[in-house]
Write a protein that binds this DNA or RNA. Structure first.
Lengths: 232, 232
DNA sequence: GAAACGCACCTTGTATACTAGTATTCTTTA
DNA sequence: TAAAGAATACTAGTATACAAGGTGCGTTTC
């Protein structure tokens, strides 16, 4: 019997949206482990719904690369693909470096307020040692910058590409030096506020280049979660 | 009665894959015009299949931003969103500029052969005045560069973001100076072959920056295809 | 004993019936 | 005549039945 963590269903939310949120949650929080078999029927009965919304969710997640569907055979949680992780790192480095330069040229005062509020909440999350909260605020920090520059879709694309890495990143959350990340965020924000283009780009690059610090270690620790060179 | 252009079904291809290719074809070739209402039932009967594969295709296309689904109301072909076009231009400029630099550092001989063959075919397409063929070869030219650098997923992301613009680009195909585009391709290729990093990047930037040359004109000519500022 | 066949059970793919919400249109009523 | 309301004909959302291919295990047969 398959066991999943269920999220509460929001008002006005369709069964499919709820199923999507729920299954995604179970994927990124490693309730469903990379390589595990997941059948539409099992998930449907685990969530108490029919196959249809589950299947439609599977299609979306397969398109995003989180599930591998083999027709008439089965569906499996995708293994972490290091090539994809590298593409995500490269993509983000290119785009966010340039975007933060744009942010220095024009940044609305509303967004400044939002960014400052976000930093306050980050500090709070650190003092409460709330890892998942800090993780969410980290994401939101970067999303605000993209959104202010009218580049929200690009942030979405980056986020999707990074979904593979995010799954194993949670495994090394305690090893993360939150204070360092926080101070980097502060430096990025103040550079934007003071319109110091060069410093903002440098700060962002430094912030992003140390992303794959421990990918090798994670691979050694959890080899079954990673895709082998030649593939399945 | 809805009328669609149908593609031939490949061997081993599922009904859904065929439906996806077919509907996508009708979208990018403006058989289905931006703003038009498309119901699952109509498309299903037009293709002689059931709602299920059509519906699953609609979900994919909605996720890619080519369809807007309003639950219990209807589904509409998405209007061209200029903000999205701009994001696509920015995204491509950032990523392909940097990628072509990588290509100068390392480019397999197989890919060189492929690129040269592609250029030959481009010349042929021009002499035959085959617009759609040249368009496809243009896409393939850029895909080869990304793929050789191990950045095929990034090319996919760029392509998806550009789907909005591509729909109206076909309207101005005859106005395109193919010879100029071709010579730019040649310059990019030779820069890569000769490992002239700076020149390759400059050539690529010049090639990409003149993308939105006539977006304003297209909007004037086909205003109903474009999204208004405030949205629907 | 080993290999080949066949059946039972699994998977996803497709079709269809039904649900529930929305828009339109026609009817009724003031 | 105009406005309100009910019936009807749509829409997408969900559930379910069936189809078709895949895997593995057990039996049968050589």
């Amino acid at each position: 019997m398959l066991s999943l963590e269920t999220l509460s269903r929001e008002t006005g939310e369709s069964v499919r949206e709820w199923a999507f949120r729920t299954i995604l949650y179970n994927l990124v929080n490693l309730v469903l482990l990379p390589g595990a078999a997941v059948s539409e029927n099992d998930v449907a009965s685990a969530l108490g719904i029919s196959r249809t919304p589950v299947r439609e969710t599977f299609i979306r997640l397969a398109q995003e690369g989180l599930l591998d569907v083999y027709p008439q055979k089965g569906t499996y949680v995708s293994l972490v693909d290091e090539q994809r992780v590298e593409e995500g790192r490269f993509m983000r480095l290119c785009l966010e470096g340039r975007t933060v330069e744009l942010a220095c040229e024009e940044f609305s005062s509303e967004s400044m307020v939002a960014l400052r509020a976000n930093l306050q909440l980050q500090r709070l999350a650190i003092s409460e040692k709330n890892a998942s909260r800090f993780f969410a605020l980290d994401e939101e920090f970067h999303r605000i910058i993209f959104a202010t520059c009218g580049k929200e879709r690009i942030w979405e694309a980056i986020r999707k590409m990074g979904s593979h890495f995010n799954r194993v990143r949670v495994l090394s959350l305690r090893a993360t030096d939150w204070e360092k990340v926080f101070s980097q965020h502060e430096r990025i924000a103040s550079s934007i506020f003071e319109k110091k283009t060069g410093e903002a780009r440098d700060a962002m690059n430094e912030h992003l280049t140390k992303v794959n610090y421990d990918l090798g270690r994670l691979r050694q620790e959890y080899p079954s979660y990673f895709k082998t060179e030649k593939g399945r």
